[in-house]
Design a protein around this nucleic acid. Structure first.
Length: 565
RNA sequence: UGGGGGAUGGUCUAAUGGUAAGACAGCGGACUCUGACUCCGCUUAUCGAGGUUCGAGCCCUCGUCCCCCAGCCA
């Protein structure tokens, strides 16, 4: 990371979490902060995780202190090391560095087991033989207290023996659990003797078959935080009810370190779904082409789509941190990437839907090179040559036979400027006799207007992009649109969210014409296709000399919004 | 009819007893060899009712609405 301030949001007022931290530092409660990002390796990271990553690692950067990457891997039936690798890659790509502080909850399985024995010896945990269904029934409801398990008052010795035998694999899955002994009458259901260990005869991605009992999240998370000396344990709102339990474990075990859990609102974005479960469904049901499908708001999908890490970081600081459930408009994300790419992306000319233009008075067989700026606002980015010749392609949308008043582009007997080229005037239109479709148009050019201005001072309102037909590189371009048609695909619980999928979220154009300089586009490189938007050479399907492009985001377009009649 | 949270323009976020501010979106205009960028201007908000106070988005009381919790998931 070269520039911390970019990540660390200098000017913005402190959010409520940073205020708490500032106060803890000021009062001397803590000398430094230690935060952590604790993903479960059961899927790919998405934009919602980015919010948490930017928060936790951002705080670390601001305070020159560590942020741990800790995998919360206590449920081997859902977790895989492939996910671990993808998560590490994505956090790194986002620009963050955990240094030496890479941890796994599974690193603590021995200590967690020891703490459980301690709990038993304290008379605060017991082995319960109720079935899952019975435990649920005994738990009571939101308005009625639970009932105590008949196994609740076993002796410490008996519990120790049974727990040992659970660990040794003597019992079947589901036949016994270890429970904390708290309060079956608590209005907080999390405190009604929660399960802390269950039997799972499943191999773990790191510990293999060493264990057949695995600790639950509530038990594991607080102890892992305490072991690592975390000062502020930041999580999402749904864990608010778990905080008393988090505190109970640490108080009961009298750990030396007792981190403070603080909850903030998770990210919701319009026109998408954020839950891992639903994202998994899209991947496994082939509604998209994998976790890194550019329509997905996974980190890997966004990367392939052409989002820069800095755009994602900017988005995360833009949206802020709060405690109320919020829905961020997709336009905020799009704005962040436009802002970023506008600064950095070289400009190029690309015709997406070609229409052949023949310049009747331009000499046959001649061509010349026109000078084009790589970034008009940033001369230091230099310029390049683009070939011009008698036959060119322009955008089909840039010609209308019967244009409305405010159409500044080409039409019969109208004149436009070719970007970095000449003024041309349309003299005739050729159509396919059968279909009536325009197949080519004929124009004349004004040799005096080379470079784009007329010595006689006449103005043209429109400037359009073009590519020399003889020099163009034909290329596929994928146009992406939002994956869902409705703002909140989850809103109606009666309707499956997949019903709201946008059938036109992907459009493949295979006859696009690139200016020749794009032959050397590197996979992953971003460009602005002038008058269209930002595009990046696809990470996977681009070949040297034969790129394929993904549209990251369109340019803002006030023309499509105007009343064209 | 339990418990835990939350309500500021269309959407987010700020204002921490003292002029309700910024971003996104929207609308209008200027500029323009990208209908982009940039610039300028505008519309739009403190959930309700009481109270405390010289002064309340902020404090108090009573309401209303929304979200979360009954996994051997995290």
């Amino acid at each position: 990371m070269t520039d911390n301030t970019e990540i660390s949001r200098e000017a913005k007022p402190l959010d409520f979490i940073r205020q708490i931290i500032a106060e803890d530092l000021r009062s001397g409660k803590h000398q430094q902060t230690v935060t952590r990002f604790p993903p479960e390796p059961n899927g790919f990271l998405h934009i919602g995780h980015a919010k948490s990553i930017c928060l936790n690692f951002g705080i670390a950067l601001e305070n020159n202190s560590p942020c741990h990457l800790r995998f919360d891997d206590t449920n081997p039936s859902k977790e895989e090391s492939a996910y671990v690798e993808s998560i590490k890659r994505d956090v790194k790509w986002l620009g963050f560095d955990w240094g030496q502080d890479l941890f796994y909850a599974s690193d603590y399985f021995d200590r967690l087991y020891g703490y459980a024995i301690q709990l038993i010896k304290l008379g605060k945990a017991y082995v319960c033989e109720l079935s899952a269904e019975e435990i649920r029934a005994y738990r009571g409801t939101l308005t009625e207290p639970g009932k105590e398990s008949p196994y609740r008052n076993r002796t410490i010795e008996e519990n120790l023996d049974l727990f040992q035998r659970m660990k040794d694999g003597e019992f079947d899955e589901g036949s016994r659990v270890l429970r904390a002994k708290i309060d079956m009458g608590s209005p907080n259901l999390n405190m009604r003797d929660p399960v802390i260990y269950r039997i799972l005869k499943v191999a773990h991605h790191r510990t293999g078959n060493t264990w057949c009992i695995y600790p639950m999240y509530d038990y594991t998370h607080c102890i892992s935080d305490a072991i690592e000396g975390i000062t502020h344990s930041l999580c999402t709102l749904e864990f608010e009810d778990h905080r008393p339990l988090y505190d109970w474990f640490l108080d009961t075990l009298k750990t030396a370190c007792h981190p403070r859990q603080i909850e903030f609102a998770r990210l919701n974005l319009t026109y998408t779904v954020m839950s891992k479960r639903k994202i998994l469904q899209l991947v496994q049901g082939d509604y998209v082409q994998g976790w890194d499908d550019p329509r997905m708001l996974t980190i890997s999908g966004l990367r392939r789509r052409g989002y820069s890490a800095s755009a994602i970081r900017k988005f995360c600081t833009d949206i802020g941190i709060g405690k109320k459930e919020s829905w961020i408009d997709m336009s905020v994300l799009e704005n962040a990437v436009r802002d970023d790419l506008n600064e950095t992306a070289p400009r190029v000319l690309v015709v997406l839907n070609p229409l052949k233009v023949i310049i009747d008075n331009y000499p046959q067989g001649q061509s010349e090179e026109m000078e084009a700026q790589n970034h008009p606002q940033r001369p230091e980015m230099g310029s390049r040559k683009i070939p011009f010749s008698r036959e060119i392609y322009i955008e089909r949308d840039d010609f209308m036979e019967d244009p409305p008043k405010k159409f500044f582009r080409l039409g019969p007997d109208r004149e436009v400027r070719l970007r970095y080229g000449y003024f041309i005037r349309c003299v005739s239109v050729v159509k396919d006799a059968a279909s009536g479709e325009i197949t080519e148009i004929h124009c004349t050019y004004d040799p005096e207007t080379r470079g784009g201005s007329a010595p006689d001072g006449r103005k043209v309102k429109g400037t359009i992009h073009w590519v020399s037909a003889a020099h163009a590189i034909q290329c596929p371009v994928r146009l992406y649109d939002r994956l869902f048609l409705t703002e909140n695909p989850d809103a109606d619980k009666q309707v499956d969210f997949k019903e709201h999928l946008n059938p036109n979220s992907l459009t493949i154009l295979d006859n696009c014409m690139l200016e020749p300089s794009l032959a050397k586009a590197q996979a992953g490189e971003s460009f602005q296709f002038e008058r269209h938007g930002y595009f990046c050479a696809d990470l996977i399907s681009s070949q040297p000399g034969a790129p394929a492009f993904n549209r990251t985001v369109t340019l803002r377009d006030s023309w499509i919004k105007t009343d064209k009649s």
